[in-house]
Amino acid sequence: MTLIQNDFCADVVAPFAGVASEPEIYIADEAPQDFFAREALLDAAFGPARFEKTAERLREGRLPAEGLAVVMKHEALLMGTLRLWHVDAGGADALMLGPLAIAKPYRSRGFGRRMMAEALFRAFAAGHRAVLLVGDAPYYEAFGFSRRVTRGLTLPGPVDEARFLGLELATGALQGAQGLVRATGRLEPARLREAA
């Protein structure tokens, strides 16, 4: 993967530096055949409570942003997943990141950071201006995420405010953003049928 210098790139490159690379491990676009392995990985990482989380309200019944659902594989084995979703962040177009999960045998080896760097680069290259997430601040602050840019925003359910973070890929992208974060991504085909 090649990173291009930009407004946020220094924050992305710093945690990525020094991460070991293994030739049989690679990041690719998520494919339909990854569905069952991805769901099993998410179940193992987060358990059934993952469906009760507030961030899930912004994902259910929606498709991830095009080109921004990625998997990490070790040969043919799915070992990591990360998706980004279209949202309206109080009047500003943004993406919601999550969930990010790495299979247990591969954790604490920098693979999550590799996936984050790839996803943020793809989002920037596609012209997206801001990314939101709910997650562990010390981990995500290394990529430039902060609570500062989400202070005027609320999520559709309870959340620990210290974990509600944002990153401006373009300076000022969330300036003046106020109010509820709403899902705006494409509906899943089944939801389209229900709507009809």
Rank of each mutant, 00 (worst) to 15 (best):
R122C: 01
G144M: 15
M96W: 12
L133F: 07
L132P: 03
Y106D: 00
F145Q: 14
A94E: 06
D93A: 12
A89W: 11
R148M: 02
M96L: 12
D93G: 02
A92Y: 03
D88L: 00
L132F: 02
G98A: 11
Y106G: 00
G127H: 07
R147S: 03
R113Y: 03
G135N: 15
R107A: 03
H128I: 02
M96T: 00
R114G: 05
R129S: 05
V131N: 08
R147P: 00
A89L: 08
G91W: 15
D93W: 09
A101Y: 00
Y140C: 10
A125N: 11
R129K: 10
L133Q: 09
M115N: 03
Y106L: 07
A89I: 05
V149H: 13
M115S: 02
R114I: 08
G112R: 09
A130Y: 03
G90H: 14
G110L: 11
L120M: 15
A101Q: 09
V134D: 13
A117C: 04
M96Y: 13
R148E: 09
A125V: 13
V134N: 12
R107S: 05
L95K: 13
V134E: 13
P138W: 01
M96I: 02
P138C: 05
Y139N: 09
G98E: 11
F121R: 06
V87P: 01
R107F: 03
A117L: 05
G91Q: 14
V131P: 04
G144K: 15
F124V: 02
R113I: 06
G91C: 11
A89G: 04
A101T: 15
G135I: 00
A123Y: 00
G135R: 15
A125I: 06
A142I: 11
H86R: 13
A130Q: 06
Y139Q: 11
L133H: 08
A125S: 14
A103M: 00
R147C: 00
R147H: 13
G98R: 06
A125T: 15
A92E: 09
P99E: 02
A101P: 04
Y139A: 09
R148A: 14
M115V: 06
Y140S: 13
S108A: 10
A119V: 03
A92N: 09
D93L: 06
A101I: 11
E118N: 02
P138T: 07
A89E: 12
A130V: 11
R129G: 02
P105K: 04
